[in-house]
């Protein structure tokens, strides 16, 4: 009776969910099909250097000419100082950033959740050490730590993924552990125990499935962070090596041209980052509102 009249489905959530899901699916679509979408090789310079994008008003007619008359594809977002097509690179970068962010999160959720279940279940020297280590990892500024780790291990995407996994795993570990601690006190765990179920079966059938929910919600939010971090690392030169198209490094190379008035090489990847991170953040928010506690 007391929780009567408390609505979980707000009216505003529907629109917000739509926006978030659209953004995320569009990003995933671009990442999957970028080779068929992009008009130019993203790592091959053209002879047009620092060419500004055509004015927006000219886009429809340019588009028409390209499709119908077979005119050469214009540089929609212009070209950078080396003559690389910004449009093709921005889209191809979706692939780079999403793959890195996604793999880092998958690795960290697997490590974090499994260690979280173990540390929630057993309280001994090992799990205590584990928890203090994760505290230690979380106490450093994420960005600096990631930078140092990548600098030490070498600038390959595998190393970036590993460094980020190490930083994000504690988030999932903490989250899962607190869920497990709460679940252990629940009546249905006691029921299962008195029914004669083994501890392993209880952990696998009851604890794990009920504990994973909040981590899956966190997953969506953390992907957004991971994209920001990937871009940030490249921006300071500790990320993927150029000329691999990547939003952060694109902004960095474009930034030097900014003083000359060439706004386009950094603006478009900048928008791409903001929109993508925003999309994932909304999805996380919506998931939390709908399924979170």
């Amino acid at each position: 009776m007391s929780d009567q009249g408390y609505q979980t489905e707000g009216t505003g959530l529907g629109v917000l969910a739509w926006i978030g899901v659209s953004i995320v699916s569009f990003a995933v679509f671009l990442a999957m099909f970028s080779p068929w979408i992009i008009p130019y090789d993203p790592t091959q310079a053209t002879e047009n250097v620092s060419m500004p994008p055509p004015p927006l008003s000219a886009w429809p007619s340019l588009f028409w000419q390209t499709i119908v008359d077979g005119a050469p594809v214009p540089h929609w977002f212009g070209t950078d100082a080396s003559g690389l097509d910004v449009f093709s690179r921005t889209i191809e970068a979706t692939r780079t950033d999403l793959i890195i962010a996604l793999s880092a999160n998958i690795v960290s959720i697997i490590i974090g959740v499994s260690l979280g279940v173990i540390s929630g279940y057993y309280k001994n020297l090992w799990t205590e050490t584990l928890l203090r280590t994760s505290d230690l990892l979380q106490s450093f500024p994420v960005f600096i730590t990631a930078m140092i780790l990548v600098a030490l291990a070498g600038r390959s995407w595998v190393n970036i993924v590993l460094a980020m996994s190490l930083l994000y795993a504690p988030i999932y570990l903490r989250l899962t552990r607190s869920e497990v601690l709460a679940l252990r006190e629940r009546g249905f765990i006691e029921s299962a125990r008195s029914l004669g179920k083994t501890e392993f079966a209880i952990a696998r059938q009851h604890i794990f499935p009920n504990a994973i929910g909040s981590s899956l919600i966190q997953f969506s939010v953390t992907i957004g962070f991971a994209i920001l971090l990937t871009a940030g690392l490249s921006f300071v030169g500790a990320g993927v090596r150029p000329p691999t198209p990547e939003w952060g490094s694109m902004i960095a190379t474009g930034a030097t041209q900014l003083v000359l008035g060439d706004w386009w090489p950094s603006l478009f990847p900048g928008i791409a980052i903001s929109v993508t991170v925003f999309g994932f953040a909304i999805c996380g928010h919506v998931l939390e509102k709908r399924y979170g506690r």
Partner: peptide, 8 residues
């Protein structure tokens, strides 16, 4: 009773 059954 609500606590003694796995909600899932």
């Amino acid at each position: 009773p609500y606590d003694s059954f796995d909600p899932r």
